[in-house]
Computed example of a mutant assay.
Amino acid sequence: MKNANDDRHLRLQQQIIHYRSEAASCRQQIKQLEAELEKEKMRSAYLKEKLREAETVNAEMYKKKIAALERQLLLYEIALEEAEHRVSGPQQTTGADPAASVLALFHYSVMIPTHLDEEEIVVIGDFIIRNSGTAPLHHPVVCLRISPPKAAVLSGKIALPQSGRAAQEGLADSGAEGWTFIQENWREKVRQNGEYWIAPLHGVPIEPGEERRFSQFEIAVRPSGNVRSLTVDGFVYGAELPKGAAAANRIAVQW
Rank of each mutant, 00 (worst) to 15 (best):
G244D: 06
L51V: 04
E169D: 12
A248R: 13
R187K: 13
S174I: 10
W179I: 07
H18Y: 12
F181N: 01
P136R: 06
L75I: 08
M1I: 02
E118G: 00
K63V: 09
E70S: 11
E34A: 14
V221F: 03
A239K: 14
K65A: 13
A104D: 03
E82W: 00
I219L: 12
A246C: 14
G89M: 03
L80R: 06
V122Q: 09
S21A: 12
R11A: 14
T56A: 10
P148V: 07
S25D: 14
P140D: 07
Q162G: 01
N5I: 04
K2W: 07
I78S: 09
S163K: 09
I112V: 15
Q254Y: 00
A176G: 01
V236S: 01
I30F: 01
R43S: 13
S101C: 12
P98N: 05
G238K: 02
A220V: 05
Y46P: 00
H138Y: 12
H138C: 09
R228P: 00
E211M: 11
A100H: 00
L116M: 02
N249K: 04
H18M: 13
L10A: 15
Q14I: 08
V204C: 08
V87L: 13
D126N: 15
V141I: 08
V57H: 03
A54Q: 10
E211Q: 12
A23P: 00
V232T: 02
Q72C: 05
E77I: 04
P208S: 08
A35K: 12
A59H: 07
P161I: 09
K39H: 15
H85L: 14
Y108Q: 08
A100V: 03
Q72E: 15
P98F: 02
F217K: 00
A152C: 08
Q91W: 02
V122E: 11
I17N: 14
P90W: 04
P223Q: 10
G170N: 14
R165V: 15
L144F: 06
Q216Y: 10
C143K: 05
E119H: 12
A159C: 11
S132R: 00
E169C: 03
V142L: 15
A247V: 02
N5R: 07
N3Y: 11
P242D: 10
L47R: 08
R145A: 11
L51Y: 14
V87H: 02
I30R: 06
L137I: 03
D97L: 09
P149V: 03
R222G: 01
P140Q: 05
L47S: 07
V204K: 14
D7W: 02
H115R: 13
E119A: 09
L116D: 03
E195R: 06
E34K: 11
A176R: 13
S88L: 07
Q183R: 15
Q92A: 06
A99M: 10
Y62P: 01
S44A: 10
A172Y: 01
